[in-house]
Each structure stands twice: as C-alpha cells, then as structure tokens.
Amino acid sequence: MAFNQTVTAPSHKMRRCLLMAFALIALALTALPTASFAGTDTAGNVLATEADSDTSSAEGDLYWAGQSLNLDDASIGRDIIAAGESLSIRDCTVGGAIRLAARTIDISKTAIDGSVTVAGQHVVLNTGSTANCFYAIGETVALRGSTKSAALAGDTVTIDGTVKGDVEVWADKLILGKNAHITGTVNAHVSEDPERAAGAEVGALKIDRTENEDTSTVNDVIGGIVAAALSTCFVALLLELIFPRATASAAGMLHQRSMPLWVSGLLGTIAIVPAVLLLIISIAGLSLAGTLLCGVIGIALMSSAFAGCAIARMVGHNQNRYAMAAVGGVIAGALTGLPLVGDFISGVAFVFMLGYIIQIIWRNARVKPQQAANTPGLPSA
C-alpha cells in the first residue's frame, strides 16, 4: 500500500467523522448477542466472539467480534480481523495482516509478517512488536515498535520506535521520542512544530504546516455554504425530474405518518453497522455487505437534497414542484454547510431518507401478501 507524498492533509472534520464511525462500531458491538457463534471452517479460519475462550491458534484467519479481546501467546496462520471496544494482542505471532477497529488498541511483543491497519480512539503498536507496515488513525496514535513504513493520522501522533523507511503523518501534534530511529523521510502535515527529543534519529523531516479549523475566514465559510446550497439544489432538481412520485410520497408520509418514518430511519441507522459487521464476519456475506455499504453511501449523498425537496413540496404543495424543489435544495444545502450544526442536519436528513425507504419496502411487503390472499380462487371442476 503506497501513499502519495503530495496528498493534502485530511481536514479535522474528516478525521472526526472517521473516529465517530469507528466508535459507533465499538459501541454497536456491545449490543451483539453474547451467544457463541464460533467455529472453524475447512480452510482453517476461526470465527469467534467474546463468549469463546479458546482463540489461541488458527491455521487460517481469525475473525473476532465482541467487547473486549485479550489475545495472549497465540499463533495465527494468516490474518486477524477484529472489532470491539478494547483489543489487546500480546506475545503473538501473526503470519498475515492485522485489521482492527476499536476504542482502544494495544499490540505489544507481537511479530506480524504483514501490515497492521487499525482505527480507534487510542492506538499503539507497542515495544517489541514488528510489522511490515503500520497504518493507523485515532485520537492518539503511538508507534513504539518496529516497522518498514508507516502512515499515521490523529490529534497526537507519537513515534518512539524504529521505522526502516518513510513515514507519513497527519496530526495536530507530532512527538518524536528519544527512541525514534527513522531511516527514511518523515512527511509531517501538522498544525504546530513537532516535538523532537534529543536522542531521536530521523533521516529527513519535511514539515507541511496546516491550518486549524478555527483559522478559516468568514469568506471560506460563506463560500462553503454557497457551494453546498448550489450543489444540493442541483441534486434536488434532478430528483424531482427523475423521481417525482418518490418526493411527493415522502412529503405525504412526512405530513401524515411522520412518527413511523422517523422511528424506522433511526432504528435502521443504528442497525447498519452491526449488520455490515455480521455480514463481513459470515464471509459468505461479503458481497451483500458491499452492496449494503454502497446503498448507505448513495443515501448519504442524496439525503440532504431529498429531504429538502420533500419538505418543500409538503409546505408548498400548491406551488410549482420544480420551484419548490429548488428552494428546498438551496435551504437544505445551506443548512448542511453551516459550521457546528451542519453534520447534525446531514444526519437528520439521512435518517429521514432511510426511514422513507424502509417504510416503502415495508408497505410493499405487506400489500403484496394481502393482495394474494384476497385473490379469488379458480372454480373447482
């Protein structure tokens, strides 16, 4: 996995959204059933939950989901793929890669032949651990082990280990500890000068100063709001042109049956993460998981325009539908572009559109069986 060194630093907003998503994964997993669904397939892959006690070895991959994983002195033939609230891997050997998502992640005294890709709130590749490469995102990220390359993103990133190659860092604060030994170049996209201990050894240090969110000018904020309003207006007009019945139906549902719509959308939003994880863990459901994720992304991209169009049609039902779609799109886009509250409004729009889709699916599923039951049978001979 190669990283282009000319890539611009991700915004704080993007990092926080990613961290919120992975925190949601960890919290959602606490609601999974405690009953064990462990098993070993014919390829030697092990599927386990927190209720399973013996995950000490696997010839193939180890798939794990639960609240707290403490993997000690284990031998895994290929990959570890796990998600939970707290993940600890110590004194292990891993023949493949490690993929983890959790609130806290600690990998210590572990030899990994492949890469380590992790996301969480507090992440550390600890002393005594070796990996081919280390990719991590979190609030605090620490590299104290040894790796050939690294790409690290977080509010605070600490490098106090060995990197036999280049390092990419996106952070507010970068700390180079006294045990840091980096043979390549550290490309640091940071908002303040790095802290470098006296014993730190770095081949080269390139600093790209990034601005904090609070240094954005009023013109930048206004420009972002205008761009969001215009783009959302365009999408709303397209939706009204292509799917006029859907926008009209959503407006009517919001007016007449708003409670089922919002409840369905909220429950569906909560269920997305555990549903995707369960499909991924089942292995056979990977294609379904991909399809579900594509659907979720599509809803997220169109939800603001759809919600604005539907609400505008409900308010101005006697007016020109294209004019109302344009007005609704502009207002929805401007609201989502506002600082602080924009993300919340986008989330509300997502819940609205998802709830409408769930209600339409539920309504069609109920109507068809009832129609079949009411169909008169043929006269018997």
Rank of each mutant, 00 (worst) to 15 (best):
L261D: 01
M253R: 11
Q319F: 08
G290M: 10
V263S: 02
L261I: 02
L292G: 13
G252P: 01
G268V: 04
I358G: 00
S303M: 07
L261K: 01
A334K: 03
G298A: 15
G328T: 12
P369E: 13
I283Q: 12
N320I: 07
L335E: 03
G265D: 07
A312D: 01
L279S: 01
N320Q: 03
L301S: 05
L288S: 10
V273R: 09
A251H: 05
C309N: 13
G295V: 08
L277T: 00
V273L: 15
W362E: 14
D343R: 14
M302G: 07
T336F: 06
A312Q: 03
A248D: 10
P339A: 07
R313G: 00
G285R: 01
V276T: 03
R245F: 06
R363V: 07
R245V: 06
Q371H: 08
G290A: 12
W362P: 00
I299W: 02
W262F: 15
A305H: 03
G290C: 10
A284Q: 13
G342H: 00
P376D: 03
V315L: 04
I280F: 06
P369D: 12
R257N: 09
L338A: 12
G342Q: 09
G328S: 09
R257C: 06
Q359R: 14
M302K: 04
V341D: 10
I297R: 10
A305G: 15
L279D: 07
V315N: 02
V367M: 11
L278C: 00
A284D: 13
A275N: 01
V327G: 07
I297V: 15
Q359T: 13
G377Y: 03
G252N: 12
L335F: 12
V367N: 11
P260V: 12
A300S: 14
G333Y: 01
L278T: 03
I357M: 15
L277Y: 00
A326Q: 06
M259T: 14
G337R: 04
R363C: 11
F350H: 14
R245D: 08
